[in-house]
Computed example of a mutant assay.
Amino acid sequence: MKKSNPWTVVFVLALFAVAMYPFFVLLASSFKHQMQIYESPWFFSSPLYPSNYGVAFRQISQPIVHSLAVTAIGVAATLIASATAAFSFARYSFPFKNALYGVIIMLLMIPGFVILVPQFISVKNMGMYNTLLGQALPPAASYTAMGVMLMRAFFEGLSRSLYEAAEMEGARDFSVFARIVLPLSKPIVATVAIMSGLQIWNNFVWSLVVTTGDKVKPVILAIMTVQGGINEGDGVKLAGYVIASLPLLILFFAATKPFVSGLTQGAVKG
Rank of each mutant, 00 (worst) to 15 (best):
S40F: 12
E39C: 06
A81S: 15
P41S: 05
L26M: 11
G233A: 08
A81F: 14
A14R: 01
S175Y: 11
S30I: 06
L27V: 10
I200Y: 08
K32R: 07
T131M: 04
I73P: 01
H33V: 15
I115V: 12
P187H: 06
V219G: 05
V123T: 15
L198P: 02
L263R: 06
F259M: 00
S61F: 12
V226M: 05
P95E: 08
P111S: 01
L100D: 02
S261A: 15
N203K: 04
A136P: 06
H66A: 03
F155G: 01
A69W: 06
I37A: 10
G127V: 13
M224R: 13
I230C: 00
S122V: 14
L238N: 04
K215L: 14
Y163N: 14
V226A: 01
S207V: 06
A86N: 07
V70N: 09
K2D: 10
M20N: 11
I115T: 12
N125T: 13
P187T: 05
F23P: 01
S175M: 12
N203V: 06
G127L: 09
G54L: 14
F44Y: 06
T211P: 06
E164C: 12
I104F: 13
A244H: 00
N130C: 03
S67G: 07
N203G: 07
L68K: 01
A14C: 06
Q227M: 13
A86R: 03
G157Y: 15
G262L: 07
V148A: 13
K217N: 14
A222M: 04
F96I: 03
T84L: 15
P139F: 11
A86T: 10
A153C: 05
N52C: 06
S245G: 09
A90K: 01
F204I: 07
V189D: 00
A239W: 03
T78Y: 12
P118I: 01
S161L: 13
P111I: 03
S82V: 12
T191E: 04
F204Q: 10
F94T: 02
A267C: 04
Q265A: 11
T8C: 03
S122K: 05
T212F: 14
Q135M: 15
L263P: 02
S93M: 01
R91A: 09
L79N: 04
G240S: 00
S245P: 02
V18Y: 04
V216E: 00
T212K: 15
L79P: 02
V268G: 10
Q119F: 10
F204H: 09
Q227K: 15
Y92K: 09
W206Q: 10
F96P: 00
P183C: 00
I220F: 08
M1H: 07
